[in-house]
């Protein structure tokens, strides 16, 4: 449950009021609330600070109007954390606030976006005169960019996905041990084997980079711009794993299996892992785009780390 536990949770326990902590943190820990993230907008992707969804005060409420996009799992979410513009008259980054919005509030409409593998993971979220109590604002008004950046740094460490990639590589090795290439297992094919080894090497380097970041955090250093290193390497490794799985599937990467719908008990086509390989490969192209595209991460390293 990354959106609650590792994204909005740290924002609330770092910047929230005692009331906000008491209200939200236990339900994040228990898993009672599913969270989604209202950051990107159709016109504000890499240039997140140009966001235009606005929140205007009306008594003890904000009235929110605008559109968010790429909102992962919004169709299941109980709560969302949203970046909204509360002051249009100052520098972009200085007029943004961080709001917690109950997704059942009238005026919220969630529309699916279907991605290349056929999945419904992300959504557009339309906000039409959505009334949000002012007490649901985290940190000061117009200072939400501070929370936003803090959260993004946390997202980047999580986004490295070391554990998931370890599992991915183990799965590839397992597949390549049973999948045959002529009279030998695929893992004996020198080309395939070399690619698996290279992946494992790169993942180990990433893992130790992450351990160094975490050690720094334990010593009281919050994840800073170095977390961009984790995001870049982690996302690329995730993509290479799916690329290799698709290669292992051979001809059986092509069948599109609609999945196990209700009342559908058909067996997938080919080896039981193969039908997921192409959709995963397509889907995982997202990792170098989301959470601040890898171009943005390189910009952060150039500016914040190298001082260019």
């Amino acid at each position: 449950m990354p959106f609650g536990l590792s994204m909005v949770g740290p924002v609330i326990y770092t910047f929230g009021t005692p009331e906000q902590k008491a209200k939200f943190l236990p339900r994040i820990l228990s898993g009672d609330d599913w969270w989604c993230q209202g950051y990107s907008e159709p016109g504000a992707g890499s240039d997140l600070a140009s966001l235009r969804t606005k929140a205007e005060r009306d008594g003890d409420h904000y009235v929110v109007n605008g559109q968010k996009t790429w909102t992962t799992m919004a169709q299941h979410a109980d709560w969302g954390f949203f970046l909204v513009r509360t002051n249009p008259d100052v520098k972009q980054q200085e007029g943004i606030s961080f709001l917690l919005i109950d997704m059942k509030t009238p005026g919220i409409e969630v529309r699916p976006i279907i991605t290349l593998g056929g999945e419904h993971e992300v959504n557009e979220v339309f906000l039409d005169n959505v009334r949000v109590p002012i007490e649901n604002r985290v940190y000061e008004e117009d200072k939400g960019w501070t929370c936003a950046k803090f959260l993004l740094a946390h997202e980047r460490t999580g986004i490295a996905g070391v554990a998931g990639s370890k599992r991915g590589i183990e799965k590839i090795k397992e597949i390549a041990t049973t999948e045959m290439d002529g009279d030998k297992p695929l893992l004996s094919n020198p080309f395939f084997r070399r690619k698996v080894a290279e992946l494992e090497m790169d993942l180990t380097a990433l893992e130790y980079t992450e351990l160094r970041t975490l050690a720094g955090e334990a010593a009281g250093k919050g994840p800073g711009p170095e977390s961009s290193v984790l995001k870049i390497k982690g996302s690329e490794i995730q993509q290479r794993i799916t690329e290799l799985a698709l290669e292992a599937a051979g001809h059986y990467g092509a069948p599109y299996f609609r999945g196990f719908g209700e009342g559908d008990n058909e067996h997938p086509i080919g080896p039981d892992w193969a039908h997921r390989t192409a959709p995963s490969y397509f889907n995982v192209r997202k990792t170098t785009i989301y959470g601040g595209s890898n171009e943005v991460q390189r910009g952060i390293i150039a500016k914040m780390v190298l001082g260019l």
Partner: peptide, 8 residues
Amino acid sequence: GGIGITME
């Protein structure tokens, strides 16, 4: 970017 990963 994101729009490239959609069916749209």
